[in-house]
Each structure stands twice: as structure tokens, then as C-alpha cells.
Amino acid sequence: MSEKHLTKGDRINMFLRSNFQQASFNFERIHALGMTFDMVPAIKRLYDKKEDQVAALKRHLTFFNVTPGAVGPILGVTAALEESKANGAEIDESTIGSIKVGLMGPFCGVGDPIFWGTLRPITAAIGASLALTGSLLGPVLFFLAFNLIRIAALYFGLEFGYKKGVGLVQNLAGNMLQKITEGAAILGLFVMGALVSKWTTINVPLVVSQVTTDGATVTTTVQDILDQLLPGILALGLTLLVSRLLKKNISPITIIFILFAVGIVGYGLGILA
């Protein structure tokens, strides 16, 4: 009996499917059906007997969750494992499941900071800053940049995982993922710092002093003093405060509405403008 291998076409099919990873997102098993949907081309190719197909489908219909953009490598490794199993390697059902689950943590750990902490905020902020001038280039640039990188991560991630197979797990024992995570965090935090300064507007027009010399009146407001100290210092303080409140499990929406109230009261009293 000749060995069974996934064709390039099967893998491209899996990659296309992985763009719809979260279509059946549900609170019971999150991506269970999504993962099975991705694996369908592989299961069809690798198993001929119906009972083997049923067993394979069932072992993927279990709880799974990862950042959608980071599913590629896990999918690749899982497909490689199924391929070895179909060719008679001594791999039992629970091994495939536990390797898959074992990869969930590390890839969420690297996927969330990369996609939601770095890639999207940066491409979206660049797009938004163009959009604020009314330029259609803003949304177009955001859409293309984000999706090109996301699609590349899915496709090359899957190919990489498939070629490395279980070897990928050993690779992770090195510190590749930690390096990427740390680098993404630095880039994300740095840009967040810049955004706090550039894109937050808090203005306190309370007048501190008014000096008239030679007919020219010089008005000094609280904001003038703060700007001399460090421009954007209030925005910085507010960001750190909100970060603390979020850590105390106060929901973002609650904080947004509190800030609404602060804005209305502050504006009414003439403290904020």
C-alpha cells in the first residue's frame, strides 16, 4: 500500500477554509466545528474507511480556541500528525488532541499581542489618521495591509507547521515564540505611547491668571501650565488610570460611560473644552 500524502491542493483548500475559522463560533466549544471544517480536506484524503473518517471527525469536534490569524501552524502540525497516523505510525487519538490543545496556549500567547495588540492597532491608526483628513486611502490601506499580513500568516503558517510536523513542538521548546511575543509587545507598547500623546484631546481652559501689560492681555490656563510641564500629561495619567480600572474588572463600556458623564459635567462647569 502506497503512502498517503496531502496534496498542495488539499493544503490550499485548508488554508482557504481557515479564513472562516470562526464562522460557527459558539460559547460551548468555540472553534471545535471550525477546526473540523478546516480538517475536512485532510480527513477525506487520508482515510478511506468510514470508521476511520468518523473517528477523525470526532476527535476534532472538541473544544478549541486560538487567535484566528494564528491558527495556520497548528493546523499544519495537526494535518502532519493525521498524515503519519494514516500511514500507520503509532500515534493514538489522545496524542493528536493533546498536541493540538498544547499548542493553543502558546499560539494565543503570540497571536493576541501580534494581531490585536500590534498589527491591527497600528494599521488601523495609520488608516484612521489618513481617514480623518477625508482620504479614502485610509480605509483602503488598512484593509489591504491587515489582510495581506493575516493571509500570509495563515498560508505560510500552515505550510511551515505541515513541513515541520511534530518538530514544530520541539522548535517551540526553543524560544522563537517568546521572542516574537516580546518583540510584538515592545512595538505595540511604543506605538500606544505615541497614540496617547497624539490622538487624545483633553483641554482644561480654566484661567489661572490674567496679566495685562502695555494693553496686551496674557491669559494663562491650567492647560498652558500642563503643556509647559509635559504635553499630553493628562492623557497619560488617564490612560494609566483606566488601565488600573480595567484590571479591577470594571467593564470598558462602564468606563466609557463614566467618561461621558465626566465630559458632560466638565463641559457644563467650564473645566473641560
Binding site: 487624545t200 483641554n203 480600572l245 480595567l246 465630559g263 458632560i264 466638565g266
Partner: peptide
């Protein structure tokens, strides 16, 4: 409008 300038920090946080 004033609050709009501030609530962006929730996303940053």
C-alpha cells in the same frame, strides 16, 4: 464631544 477626545484612552488601556 469633549468626552470623545478622552474615551480613546480606553482602547489604549
Amino acid at each position: 464631544t469633549v468626552a470623545g477626545g478622552m474615551i480613546v484612552v480606553v482602547g489604549y488601556a
